[in-house]
Design a protein around this nucleic acid. Structure first.
Length: 157
DNA sequence: GCCAACGTTGGC
DNA sequence: GCCAACGTTGGC
């Protein structure tokens, strides 16, 4: 399989925490992707993401889980401030400003789409190998192939 | 609320 | 380094 010129991603957010509508109300429709506390997901943000990479904005842990819209990576990685905040649920006592442990990127919503429910994703032949649909997958940030991305955009329109 | 699956922690 | 116990994710 050929390598696409830029990587594409699916990023999960709990709408009770930050929904796509919440982000659309923020300045520049952009949100700092706080709270990732998994090393694989962190490494994707820190090492692999590039500004402009397309992102599928996914709502999880909610009545209607699924892809809620299209977004893009809007910054390079920088330290997640919440790791230093003792009042935050994302506080990490082992992180210091000299040696931050958790990094994030800014994510800019491009547009909200019709919701593509998880059940619809699972019905698609083109998406059977999609990382986020694999049994037991819990990663909040997963890579998406060019073909998978196109198939989901088609469903969202 | 249940539970499968996975990641992290910490004793040894 | 092993691995059991524990905590978390996330759909249902």
């Amino acid at each position: 399989m050929s390598r696409s010129p830029c990587n594409r991603w699916l990023m999960k957010s709990e709408p009770s925490d930050v929904s796509i509508d919440d982000v659309l109300r923020m300045p520049r429709a952009t949100v700092a992707w706080h709270g990732v506390r998994n090393y694989v997901a962190r490494n994707f943000m820190r090492d692999t993401m590039k500004v402009g990479d397309p992102v599928l904005f996914y709502h999880s842990s909610c009545p209607e889980p699924g892809v809620a819209g299209l977004a893009e990576v809007a910054s390079t990685a920088y330290p997640d401030e919440t790791q230093f905040d003792a009042q935050s649920k994302y506080f990490d006592a082992k992180a210091t400003r000299e040696a931050p442990r958790w990094m994030l990127v800014d994510v800019k919503v491009v547009r909200k789409t019709r919701l593509v429910p998880l059940a619809s994703l699972r019905e698609q032949k083109a998406l059977t190998d999609m990382v986020v649909l694999k049994r037991g997958n819990r990663l909040s940030i997963t890579p998406v192939t060019d073909d998978e991305y196109r198939a989901i955009v088609a469903l969202a329109e």
